[in-house]
Each structure stands twice: as C-alpha cells, then as structure tokens.
Amino acid sequence: MNKKIIFQTGSALISILLTALITFGFLFILGRDPVVIFGRIFSEVFGTGYGFAQTLFKTTPLIISGCAIAICFHAKLFNIGGEGQINAGAFVMALTATSFPGLPFLIILPLSILTGFIVSAVFGFIPAVIKVKKGVSEVITTIMLNFISLAMVNYFLISHFAVESTIRTTKIPENFFFTKLSDFIPSFHGSPLNITLFIALLLALIIYFTIYKTSIGYKLRAIGFNPVASVYMSVNVNKYTIVAFVLAAGMMSFVGLNYIFGYKGFYEYGFSANIGFTAIAVSLLARNNPIGIIFSAFLFGFLDYGGLAVNELVPKEIMLIFQGLVVLSILGVNKLTDNYLKINLERN
C-alpha cells in the first residue's frame, strides 16, 4: 500500500517535471529565458510574505473546486460544468448576503451558504437526472449548462441586481467580511488571504474521510469502479450518481466564500476565471485524493500568481498552456507507472 502511494506521488512529480521541461523548451524557442522567468516566479512567491499569501489566496478556491470534482471522478462521472455551478451559486450567495439588512452575520452567513449550495446543486442535479433517466452522457449536458448558467446569471445581474453601469452586486456590510490572515501575520499585509483557506482545508479532510472511510464514499467509488457489480452489491447506481453530482456541484458554490466574504464583498461576473476547468487538472494531478489535492491546488495557485508576477516578461497565458500540459503528462505518466505497478504486483 505504501509502495503504491510512493509510486503515485512519484508519477505526479514526474508529470510536473515533464511539463516544466516542455514549458522551458517552449519558452526557449520563443526566445525568452525560462530560468529568469521561473526564477522570478520563485522569488515572488517564496521571497515575500505578500507573494506567498497571494499564492495561498489563489490556492483556496482550487482546493474547494478540486475536491468537488474529485467526488465525481471517484464515481467515474465527468463534471465539466464547474464554471457554471460556481457562478450560479456565488451569485445567489452574494444576493442572499445583501438582501436581509437587519439580520446578524451569524444568521446571514449560513443562510448565504445554504442558498448558494442549493442553486449550485441544481446545476449538478439536472445533468445527473438526465443521465439517470435518459442515459444522456453528462459530458455534453454539463458543458451546455455552463453556457446556460452564465447567461442566466448575466441576465439577472444586469437587468435586476447589478450596481449601475457595473457587472457586480452591491457590497456586503463591512462587519460581514471574514478575518484576514494578515491580522495575525503582518508580513501578509495587503493580501486578501482569509480564513476561507482553513474552511477549504477542513473540507478537503472531510471529503477525504467521506470518500475513503464512510459507506457513502465506498458506494460512490463502487459505482465508479464497476457499476454492474455495484448493482449486485445492492448499491443503487442511479441514486449515488445523483448524490455525487449534487454534492460536487453544491460544493462548487463555496468558491464564492473566498471572493465574496474574503475579498471583494460582492459577486462580479467573470470572477471565477475558469476555476471550474482548472479544478479538473488539480484533481487529476492528485489522482482525485483530497489530501493530494491540497498540494496540487498549491501548485496551480503558485502558477496562477506566478504567471501574473512575470506578465511583463511573458504573457500570463503561458500558465494556461502549463495546465493543459500537466493534464496530458499526468495521463501519460500515470498509464506508464500503472502498467509498471501491475506487472510488479503480478510478479509478487
């Protein structure tokens, strides 16, 4: 068992290395010095408290969305609708937080989380039900729902709820903001890094235990591993397909906490910056293990902030290339190590 984890961690590291090498080569061909660029990223992130805090701030939503995607991946379900789920949930979360001016924070916060969760979950429930009832693959429906969800949010925002001539909602009261970590660690000053990071870490632990140590998690993995055998184990495949999707989609809304309560205080159209897609890469790199996701989310947070830091040397879009390359090298390297493990296990 331990050997397996070592091998899997090893293959993740090899994929990262491979991706870095290809990116280096690519930059070199374009006439940019990769050593200077990556050196700058490292010194930005690890050299200053602010840079490190910014990286953790970017990591937070990726932990949340990565774990959400992982739930679906364990059940062999493809949730490519993260982007739409995040926006719908976060939008409603922000609306709820500003709609009841008289109520205290301790009521508003759970209420906002609940409404956000429900709305996001609806966008997971729809493709799950269509899959269960009609057999339509969730891949296409979740992608279509991304477009539909964003269009709906855009409509309600612009024609009803936006602050005039902006694409954002009104701001929550000042006393609703989450505590910033810079209050305790002065060198983080200026960064919006807040306690959502701890919520995300806690969620990762909860999801880890749910997936590997509870009967729900066991059944989710069973329908992913072998749906036919699951039926004979009297696991209701349809039910757990819906459960996985509703949980995963609902969880996506928590991404909004970091931005709304932790940073800006409002929902802004386009705030999610493709987190829903990056989450797929985050989860895959960690082989859908929530503890591993914490680390792979940090890698992507590092690249995300690092990309901004070197934008004058090379367009920050280089990080999008890095993301795609990571996914492909994980797939390739994992296949090779799995084959190696299989051969070795058979031999023993």
Partner: peptide, 22 residues
Amino acid sequence: LKTDHIVTGVGFNLLIAGLADF
C-alpha cells in the same frame, strides 16, 4: 497509451485554448 478518452479530450481542449490565447 489507452488513456481515458474524455479526460484526454479535456486536456487537449485546455492546452489548445491556452496555446491560442498565449
């Protein structure tokens, strides 16, 4: 390599869109 077709497709879409943007 016999990788999962859908995940591979997602990876290609990310990579190609990223390359174009870059």
